[in-house]
Nucleic acid binder design. Sequence first.
DNA 1: ATAATATGTCGTATATTTACGTCATTAATT
DNA 2: AATTAATGACGTAAATATACGACATATTAT
Lengths: 109, 109
Amino acid sequence: MTKVELFSKDLQKISGVFKALGHPARLAILQYLAETRVCISGDISNEIPLSRTTVSQHLNELKEVNLIQGEIEGVKKNYCLNAKEISRIKDMLDSFLIKIECIDNQNCQ
Amino acid sequence: MTKVELFSKDLQKISGVFKALGHPARLAILQYLAETRVCISGDISNEIPLSRTTVSQHLNELKEVNLIQGEIEGVKKNYCLNAKEISRIKDMLDSFLIKIECIDNQNCQ
DNA sequence: ATAATATGTCGTATATTTACGTCATTAATT
DNA sequence: AATTAATGACGTAAATATACGACATATTAT
């Protein structure tokens, strides 16, 4: 029933990233990871008003689009932002928005 | 069951926009509207490989976050991009991403 | 007045997301 | 070796999103 495949790989990719950013819990997680550069993993569930398993699920979705990374350290797993990829993603989203903005305004490029 | 309200209005707002952009059909609609500045409404359903009603639903979601506008002209309804709002939205998304990027890199501001 | 055209509304089936508890696993600690 | 702590994996209920057909409404054209 899902007709997502009917659209270009490009649009699928871009919308996938937007989708990952489309939940306040995931934005809160990103903000928290940015603040505590230390990237402690379990503490995220304490910070976010959701159960540990739910947070884990959100973390996976963020990882799927490469916004974050996880690194095992003994029994713990330290999550942190993927700064390089975030920058790339920001450029990607920007260029999409700029493109429709520009075509519409006809005053760029 | 939805716990979206537990997060700040700010995060709710930003994630709402990301969410609206989180489907390839809606991105395709935005691109089409950008190309055909003429903003014909029914033609969108011809361009997009989805039924008229489904497209209409996607249009409503885009309208809800002010990415597009609709203007009735007789029996037709001309949709078009809300350029001013798109620009504002781009700034909003940018500033969110830049913020987490910067905190993370500690090399800006 | 009637027909044709363009949209919107409603109901609904299916798919996906959200949210959580329970159980399994793995690594330190005692 | 047994316990504790930190995660991941799995199953599942409830909420949302996706997709569409059928019907309703409104504005032109005939």
